[in-house]
Structure formats: C-alpha cells, structure tokens
Computed example of a mutant assay.
Amino acid sequence: MSTLDDLLAAGVRVVEEGLSPGSSGNLSVRAGDRIMISGTGAPLGRMRPENIAVLDLDGRHLDGAKPSKEWPLHVAFYRRDPRHQAVVHVHSPSAVAVACLEPWSEHSAVPPLTPYFVMRVGQTPLLPYRRPGDPALGEDLRTCPWELRGALLANHGSVLAGTDLNEAVDRAAELEEACRITLLTSGMPRRELDADAVAELARRWSSPWGERTTLSPARR
C-alpha cells in the first residue's frame, strides 16, 4: 500500500480498537522529507484523501487540508530519531486517566506490571500539561531527556511512534492496556516486575527503560 493508504487504514483501526473516541486523535506517516498527517477535525475512521495534509520536516504546510493542531508533536518525534516513521496521538480512556495521576516515576508514568508493556513500549514519561495545540508540546517531547517510544501528555492523552503505522498503533494499544491494568490495580498491594526482570526484557527487545538520551545538535 502507499503511505496514503496506510494512513487511511490506520485511522479505521484506531477507531475500531477504541483508541480514538469521537473525532479526537491524529495520525501521521513520514515519506522521505515529507510528513502526511490527518487534517484538523478529520474523523479518523472515515478519512478520505482530501482530509490529509502534507508538511515538511520543519512543520511547514505544503499541500492538502489544514493540518491537525497537534502537528508539533509529530514533527518532534521525527526530529528526535530518524527511525520513527509514523506517529499516533490518541485520547484513549485509560491512558488519559493515568495522565491525570501523579507519575509512577520520573522516567515512566506507567509502572512495569506486564512484560509486554516493557517489551513493546518501554518507559513512558509524563510530559507537562499544555493546552491542546500548544507548540510547546512538541518542544517538550523533542527535548525530553529520556529515551522513549511513547509519552503521556498530562491530563490529555498519549503519543506513540513506530517504524511504521502498524507498529505505532500496536504501541498505542499496548500502552492503553498497560494503563488499564494500572488503574485496575491502583491502591492494591500489587506486584510489579522487579528491576532484574525489567532490565532483561529491555535488553532482549531493545526497549528503552531507565535510559537517558543524549540530544544531538539537530535535536536540541
């Protein structure tokens, strides 16, 4: 499929999997030095080609629909790491709920309760609250000192990146499940994975956990 077809199919998937209530959320995919992103107000499950905007890697609007106001988040992920080729930002219920709580730790708002969260997502820091569409959201993500594939936005939602749209959506779904389990076990004497188990999982699946990043000049 073309990147456009991938983007339209991913929109259907996030709605079908309950990750994007109402008309919320936005998706993008990188195609060389261009970014294709859902347009502002575009219903993700019913997007058409005319609902897609084209940006350059600095976020300048080149063609198509008016881009989602959250475009700075997408540009920030692409600038952090060239391996990121797709970004998913959603307001799934459990992730939003955990984003309204105090974080589990500085490097991850979500505790390591299941191996799959550590393997597929890894540490997920909580970024400060900003109003939706605030360009500072992108700057917070771009300069976050922790290695990451995803983050929670305080009182807002989640943002995940992947090597393609399927991987980014998979990670959004895994993070939502991890947040749901976090909420279900909140206030109980729960058993988290110990540090050795987390370290082994992170090593085997090349997943970020407890690691800080060194920002290159292009990412500062």
Results as ranks from 00 to 15, higher is better:
Pro135Ile: 12
His89Arg: 05
Arg46Met: 10
Val198Glu: 12
Thr3Ser: 12
Pro128His: 09
Val159Pro: 00
Val118Glu: 10
Pro111Met: 12
Gly122Thr: 08
Asp63Ser: 12
Asp170Thr: 03
Val110Met: 12
Ile52Tyr: 06
Glu147Leu: 15
Trp104Lys: 11
Met188Leu: 15
Ala218Tyr: 08
Asp170Ala: 01
Ala97Gly: 14
Lys69Arg: 15
Ala31Gln: 10
Leu148Met: 13
Arg203Cys: 04
Ser186Thr: 12
Asp170Arg: 07
Leu73Thr: 03
Pro135Gln: 09
Val54Glu: 05
Gly59His: 06
Ala53Met: 04
Val159Lys: 01
Ser23Glu: 02
Trp146Met: 09
Glu167Gln: 15
Gly64Val: 04
Ala172Arg: 01
Ala31Asp: 14
Ala161Pro: 00
Leu148Gly: 06
Ala95Glu: 00
Ser206Leu: 13
Pro132Val: 03
Glu174Tyr: 06
Met119Ser: 15
Asp164Phe: 06
Pro72Gly: 09
Val88Leu: 03
Ala136Ile: 08
Asp81Trp: 12
Pro189Asn: 13
Arg80Cys: 13
His89Cys: 04
Leu73Gly: 03
Leu113Val: 13
Leu153Asp: 03
Ala197Arg: 13
Gly41Phe: 07
Phe117Ser: 09
Asp6Trp: 03
Pro112Phe: 13
Arg203Phe: 08
Arg204Cys: 09
Pro189Lys: 11
Glu192Ile: 13
Gly25Gln: 02
Asp5Leu: 12
Gly210Val: 09
Arg48Gln: 14
Ser2Ala: 04
Val159Cys: 08
Ala109His: 08
His61Tyr: 05
Ala197Leu: 11
Ser24Ile: 07
Arg212Cys: 11
Gly59Phe: 00
Asp63Tyr: 07
Gly157Arg: 05
Ala197Lys: 11
Asp81Thr: 10
Ser24Asp: 11
Ser186Phe: 14
Arg131Thr: 11
